[in-house]
C-alpha cells in the first residue's frame, strides 16, 4: 500500500481523457439519437393527432354533406314526383282529348257509314224499283205505248222553238248523211212518214232514214243523228231515272 505519484497523475489524466472520449463518442451520440427518436415519435404522434383531427373534421364535413345530399335528394325526389304528376296529368288530358277526338271521328265515321248505308239502301231500292218498273213496263208495254211515245216525240219536235233548232243544227257538226231510227216494235208507215217529216224540219236536211228494231227498248224510239242521239224509250227513261236518283243521293 504505497502511493505512486506518477500513477496518480497518469490516472487523473487518463480518466479525464476517458471522460472526454465517452462524452464525445458515447453520451452525445446516444443521447442525440435518443432525442431524435423521441422527436420522431413526438412528430409522429403530433402527425397522428393532426390526422385524427383532420379525419374528425372530414367526418363531420362528410356527415354534413351527407345530410345535405339527403335533403337535396329528397327535394329532387319531391320535384320528380311533382313532375311525374304533372306529366301524368298532361298525358291523361292529352289522352282524354285524343279519346274525345277519336270518339268524334268514330261518330262522324259512323254517321257517314250510316249515311252511306242509307244511300246504298236507297240506291238499291231505286234500282230495285227501276227493275220492278222495267219488268212491269216490259210486261205492260206494247205497240200502243210505242205509238203514244212516237206521238210525244213528234209533238215535242214540233214544239221546239227556233233558237233551239238552230242550236241543234250546229251540234252535230258536219251534216249527217243518214239518220238511224231504232224502235221496239216495227213502226207503221204513217209514223215513219211523220218522223221523217219532223226530222227533216228539225235538221233542215234531207238525209237517208234507216229503221231498226230493238226489243230491249221496251217501247219508244232511239234516234241517232251523227253523234247526237235522241232517246225516247222506256229503257233509257228508266235508266235515266235511276241515274238521276243516284246522282241526287
Amino acid at each position: 500500500m504505497e502511493l505512486s505519484w506518477s500513477t496518480f497523475v497518469l490516472e487523473i489524466i487518463n480518466f479525464l481523457v476517458l471522460v472526454w472520449i465517452l462524452k464525445r463518442f458515447l453520451y452525445r451520440p446516444v443521447l442525440d439519437i435518443v432525442d431524435k427518436r423521441r422527436q420522431s415519435i413526438n412528430d409522429e404522434l403530433q402527425q397522428a393527432r393532426q390526422q385524427r383531427d383532420e379525419a374528425d373534421r372530414l367526418k363531420g364535413e362528410y356527415e354534413n354533406r351527407l345530410a345535405d345530399w339527403e335533403q337535396e335528394r329528397q327535394q329532387l325526389r319531391d320535384k320528380l314526383a311533382e313532375e311525374l304528376d304533372e306529366e301524368r296529368s298532361r298525358q291523361l288530358t292529352a289522352l282524354q282529348e285524343q279519346l274525345r277526338s277519336e270518339q268524334e271521328k268514330a261518330a262522324v265515321s259512323e254517321q257517314q257509314r250510316r249515311a252511306e248505308t242509307s244511300r246504298q239502301t236507297e240506291l238499291q231500292a231505286l234500282q230495285q224499283a227501276s227493275g220492278f218498273a222495267a219488268r212491269l213496263l216490259q210486261e205492260a208495254s206494247g205497240p200502243e205505248l210505242e205509238t203514244r211515245l212516237v206521238e210525244l216525240v213528234l209533238r215535242d219536235l214540233d214544239a221546239l222553238p227556233g233558237d233551239q233548232l238552230e242550236s241543234l243544227q250546229t251540234q252535230w257538226g258536219d251534216p249527217p248523211a243518214k239518220i238511224d231510227i231504232t224502235s221496239a216494235f216495227t213502226l207503221p208507215a204513217q209514223q215513219r212518214q211523220g218522223l221523217e217529216t219532223a226530222l227533216q224540219r228539225v235538221t233542215g236536211l234531207t238525209p237517208q232514214f234507216s229503221y231498226n228494231k230493238d226489243d230491249s227498248l221496251l217501247a219508244g224510239l232511239q234516234i241517232s243523228i251523227g253523234a247526237w242521239v235522241l232517246n225516247m224509250n222506256l229503257r233509257d227513261e228508266l235508266k235515266g231515272f235511276a241515274e238521276f236518283a243516284h246522282v241526287t243521293h
Binding site: S4, W5, T7, F8, E11, F15, L16
Partner: peptide, 12 residues
C-alpha cells in the same frame, strides 16, 4: 486495487 488509482479518482 491500487491506492494511487483510487486516490486519483477521489481527488477528481
Amino acid at each position: 486495487r491500487d491506492l494511487s488509482a483510487t486516490a486519483a479518482l477521489a481527488i477528481l
